[in-house]
Design a binder for these strands. Structure first.
Length: 414
DNA sequence: TCACCAGTAAACACGC
DNA sequence: AGCGTGTTTACTGGTG
């Protein structure tokens, strides 16, 4: 392979994925998060130094992760944005500031972004006024935000195009009236898959980006959890309005190339939707962005996305408010529809996508709210369960460690 | 070991 | 012809 080559040596050293993998393998990943000062170097905790119990120390991450959770819930300092998701889901105009990459170590400019191409494309499109961009603009956006690609050979562009073509999340929009106007088309995010992208994006920073720059860790889950819930809430909101059963937060693992973003499983599209509900094996090769991230972090996300019960409660009250007017929150599909409808380019036929069916009913019924509350309740229980579980493990481990230490001391004395 | 997925390279077709 | 774009296939490496 050439310079860009897929897995270059430097990539192994620099890519968040590699670092993440190594970090997790060494059980430092999670534990290191709260401590920016120790970023990247293996930490020796008090227990660590006790060389006698290597196996026990290998579980330090668990111990620390519990602390991490505490930090998450306690952390209130406004940290720099870690994930563009903040902007995507936020009320403000999306702006994927490269600051999300500007960690103190300044790795960003030379290191690969911890986002998959699909997510990068999504961010680019999402930031555009019309929620649609030509490939060239996508290139520019990525280049602008991630200087890494400026020095990278052009292979990444191929990857971008490859993603656009293969990934069901992205749709091609003809520039005007179905007529191919000049080179290229506009690309937009299929609203049906948007929640999945958001979800993947939300999970990405925790698994990759966070491990990547190892900053003090409060914000990712702090704000992402409500947003995550919000996004799901939005999904379910839409679903509820359509008379569908709300989608559980945990998406069932589906074994296909497009698993996490396959609308039917992830966001529960109506069966009749051929585009999304397609289960034709020939479409199995549907690229889906970061589905790995979605899936692989699923176990963690249940904790990380609800890192603080306070947050959840806070979120609930907020969500209830938002739910009552049904218009706030992150880019809902309604928003997106609006974009397409307002979009002068929207006459391409894209605006006629089924994504618009929720817009007629912007006022959720009492029943819908009840369903949402019930669902949130379940999530709370699950989150609480996870925390209790961790706490239990921590207690258990602490006990084991102290027993082991005592044993060691006694034996040494002998 | 296996399956899945992201990333990459490459080939090809098409339009400008 | 050259370039940009879009599609498709094949492969590699990481991960669970």
């Amino acid at each position: 392979m050439g310079p860009v080559t897929g897995m270059t040596p430097d990539k192994k050293a620099e890519t968040p994925g590699a670092e993440k993998a190594a970090g997790l393998r060494q059980c430092h990943g999670l534990g290191s998060l709260p401590d920016a000062g120790h970023a990247g170097k293996p930490k020796a905790t008090v227990v660590d130094r006790d060389s006698a119990d290597d196996e026990l120390t290998n579980l330090n991450w668990l111990h620390e992760s519990t602390n991490l959770l505490t930090n998450f819930s306690l952390g209130s300092e406004g940290l720099p944005i870690v994930s563009p998701l903040y902007d995507i889901e936020g009320d403000s105009v999306p702006s994927f500031s490269p600051s999300c990459y500007q960690n103190p170590e300044k790795k960003s400019s030379t290191s690969k972004p911890p986002y998959s191409f699909s997510l990068l494309i999504y961010m680019a499109i999402e930031q555009s006024p019309n929620k649609s961009l030509p490939v060239k603009e996508i290139y520019s956006w990525i280049l602008e935000r991630f200087p890494y690609f400026a020095t990278a050979p052009t292979g990444w562009k191929n990857s971008v195009r490859h993603n656009l073509s293969l990934n069901k999340c992205f749709r091609k929009v003809e520039k005007s009236h179905g007529k191919v106007n000049g080179k290229g088309s506009l690309w937009c995010v299929d609203p049906k898959y948007k929640p999945n992208l958001v979800q993947a994006l939300k999970k990405q920073p925790f698994s990759s980006a966070l491990a990547f720059y190892t900053p003090p860790a409060s914000p990712p889950s702090r704000s992402s959890s409500p947003h995550y819930l919000t996004s799901v809430l939005q999904q379910n909101h839409g679903r509820a309005l359509k008379g569908e059963k709300p989608q559980p937060l945990k998406t069932p693992k589906k074994r296909s190339y497009g698993s996490a973003f396959d609308a039917p499983s992830s966001i529960g599209l109506p069966e009749g939707d051929s585009a999304a509900a397609n289960i034709d094996p020939s479409e199995d090769h549907n690229y889906s962005a970061s589905s790995v991230g979605s899936q692989r972090c699923a176990s963690r996300s249940s904790v990380s996305s609800l890192s603080s019960l306070d947050e959840v409660y806070e979120f609930i009250s907020k969500a209830s408010h938002e739910g009552s007017d049904g218009s706030e929150g992150f880019h809902s599909e309604v928003d997106t529809d609006g974009d397409y409808e307002d979009d002068p380019l929207g006459d391409s036929g894209y605006a006629a996508q089924p994504c618009g069916d929720g817009s007629k009913e912007s006022q959720p019924s009492q029943k819908v709210l009840e369903e949402l509350c019930q669902e949130i309740d379940e999530e709370l229980k699950e989150a609480a369960g996870s925390l209790l579980h961790l706490a239990g493990i921590q207690t258990c481990l602490s006990s084991l460690i102290s027993t082991a230490k005592t044993h060691c001391h006694k034996q040494r004395k002998k």
